[in-house]
Computed example of a mutant assay.
Amino acid sequence: MTADGPREPFDLRTTRNALVRAAGRQLGRWNARRPWDHNAHFHRWVLAGVPAGARRVLDVGSGRGDLARALRGVAAEVEGIDPDARMAYAAASALRDLDGVHIARRTLAEHAADPSRHGAYDAVSMIASLHHQDPVAAFAQARALLRPGGRLLVVSLVRPVGPADRIWDLTNVLTNPLIGLVKHPCPVRALPPADAAGRGRREDAMPITDAAFSTAELRELAHGHLPGARVRRRTGFRVTLRWTAPPGQDAR
Rank of each mutant, 00 (worst) to 15 (best):
G61R: 09
L221P: 02
F139R: 06
A164W: 08
G248L: 05
V46T: 09
L58G: 01
P35G: 12
A75V: 06
V57A: 11
G119A: 08
F139K: 10
D134F: 02
N176G: 09
R7N: 03
G65C: 02
R72S: 11
A205N: 13
A216L: 11
R189D: 07
T107C: 04
R34L: 04
M126R: 03
L146T: 04
Q26F: 13
R199F: 14
A205F: 12
G73N: 00
L47K: 09
A222I: 06
L152K: 03
R25E: 14
E203G: 10
I179H: 12
A216Y: 07
L153N: 05
R56F: 07
V60I: 06
V50K: 10
G73P: 00
M206P: 00
G162T: 03
P193Y: 11
A120C: 09
R64P: 11
G198K: 04
T235Y: 11
V60H: 01
I167V: 15
A76P: 00
D11E: 12
I127M: 09
P177H: 11
N39C: 12
R72T: 01
H41M: 11
L174F: 08
A138Y: 00
A109Q: 14
F213I: 01
S156A: 15
A123I: 10
P246T: 05
A90W: 10
M206D: 12
N31E: 14
V154W: 05
L58Y: 06
P163L: 10
F42Y: 14
P135N: 06
E79W: 12
T171C: 15
R238Y: 13
L12K: 06
V173L: 15
H102M: 12
P207F: 03
H225L: 08
G24H: 01
P187M: 06
N172H: 04
Y121L: 12
R7V: 13
S129P: 03
R151Y: 04
M206L: 14
L153K: 10
P185L: 13
H131S: 03
R232A: 13
A113I: 00
V78K: 05
L226G: 02
A137N: 02
A88R: 03
G198Y: 02
L130G: 07
R151P: 00
M87C: 12
G248C: 03
V173S: 11
A216R: 11
A23I: 10
G65M: 01
A164C: 05
L58C: 00
Q141H: 15
R72E: 00
G28E: 11
G149R: 04
P148S: 07
A104I: 00
R16S: 14
R55P: 04
A92F: 01
R189C: 05
